[in-house]
Computed example of a mutant assay.
Amino acid sequence: MRSIAFLSADFLANPWPEYARFRAERPVWWADEIRMFCVFRHKDIRTCLTSTDYTVEYPFRVSRQVFGETLLDLDGPRHQRLRRPLAGLLLGQRDNIGFRAAAEDRARTAVAALRPDTELDMVRGPARTVPLTATATFLGIPPERHDWLLHTVEYLVSHLDGSSGDFARASALRAELEEYLLRLISTGAPARSMLGEVHSWVRDGRITAAEAVGLATLTLAAGFETSTGLISNALHCLARHPGHAAGAASDTGRLRSFLKETLRWEPPQHDTVRFARRDTTLAGVPVPAGSALKLVLASGNRDAEVFDHAEEFRPDRSTHGSLTFGHGSHSCLGTHIALDVAEAFIGALLARFPGLRAVDDPMPPITGSTFRRPQALRMWLGPKGES
């Protein structure tokens, strides 16, 4: 059986045939190239995400090297202690935190600034700026620091995807970001913001200042990368499926369904990592203690045992069971945030520019390794609509 050349141009542009082949023939496979077990089937991925046989804890995890220790690196009681208050903010359980309002405001402002009958690269333009500025507003970071924040977070996130960039510079930027966030948490965050809330947690001794910075950093990184990828991939899917696009443009409920199917069919993050706590067996394959496992979430999303006609894009389907945002104790708290940002921006965009269309034929492919989106997506805005 062939192996996978993970960094080959063909695989990066179209990994789906390989995912299907490995799901059918070798659902748990040791990859010499990356020194990891790769897990392709939905049920096996869920096992790794929920079983105590596997953990996120590993001192040399790339995300930990780039962003420092965050919830991504913790299991057990400490993870639960930090996740619980963050969930209250991100899931909207505290009425003093209006993330959706911030997202909608940033989206409307961005769309209102676009000129009719012009061409725009969506990926390098609003798909980057809208999620970051919405997340920064939610945290309580003043607008004059948003450009600096965008370039800082973008550079750091690039190192999570196999970048060979300058890690010395990344370390310096991380230190600068952490110092800035600590100052805001300590003295300068608005009361009605995430960092204002976090300040009270530190003051009351519920979390340490270092843990507070980790929560803020993770929120920034996840809010930027996931939402940017979702918006980019959703616009790509809208251009590829104009029939579905017309329905999404006229009905917010159908737009939400379109975005959820985009997350299943073209997720912005294709895999995550776990480590075996002890000797175990997965799908009949022995997995020694300490082994790293690459859980191919995107492959699980197209598993025919879970989704009928899984290889087809069907916005009217139920996406229950999608693994895009993980599952279990480490499922992403930002699911609704990413959807809110994308829905606010794309909804406003389609209402203002109903003639929106892609310029290039064929369009640039969705590509990448762990994080995937088109590298560019030129779109013609067309005339301004009535709404």
Results as ranks from 00 to 15, higher is better:
residue 335 T to D: 03
residue 320 H to A: 15
residue 303 D to N: 13
residue 311 E to L: 09
residue 304 A to W: 07
residue 251 D to V: 13
residue 298 A to V: 02
residue 338 A to D: 02
residue 243 G to F: 11
residue 321 G to D: 05
residue 253 G to V: 05
residue 349 L to Q: 08
residue 313 F to I: 02
residue 272 T to S: 10
residue 289 A to N: 11
residue 327 H to Y: 14
residue 311 E to I: 00
residue 334 G to I: 04
residue 301 N to L: 09
residue 243 G to W: 11
residue 304 A to T: 10
residue 321 G to I: 02
residue 276 A to E: 04
residue 291 S to A: 15
residue 303 D to V: 10
residue 332 C to L: 09
residue 292 A to D: 09
residue 250 S to P: 03
residue 273 V to S: 08
residue 287 V to Y: 01
residue 262 T to S: 01
residue 302 R to L: 10
residue 284 G to N: 11
residue 330 H to K: 10
residue 349 L to P: 02
residue 286 P to Y: 10
residue 329 S to V: 13
residue 272 T to L: 13
residue 258 F to V: 06
residue 329 S to N: 05
residue 330 H to N: 12
residue 342 A to W: 01
residue 258 F to P: 01
residue 244 H to T: 00
residue 270 H to P: 03
residue 323 L to C: 09
residue 308 D to R: 14
residue 279 D to N: 14
residue 263 L to Q: 01
residue 295 L to M: 15
residue 317 R to N: 08
residue 314 R to Y: 02
residue 258 F to E: 07
residue 283 A to H: 07
residue 343 E to Y: 04
residue 260 K to E: 13
residue 254 R to V: 09
residue 302 R to A: 07
residue 245 A to W: 03
residue 309 H to K: 13
residue 302 R to I: 10
residue 329 S to D: 07
residue 306 V to G: 06
residue 339 L to N: 06
residue 275 F to K: 06
residue 320 H to P: 03
residue 299 S to E: 08
residue 332 C to E: 08
residue 267 P to F: 00
residue 262 T to F: 00
residue 310 A to I: 10
residue 248 A to Q: 02
residue 271 D to R: 09
residue 287 V to R: 03
residue 307 F to T: 04
residue 277 R to A: 15
residue 245 A to V: 04
residue 313 F to M: 08
residue 261 E to A: 01
residue 284 G to W: 03
residue 264 R to L: 10
residue 264 R to H: 12
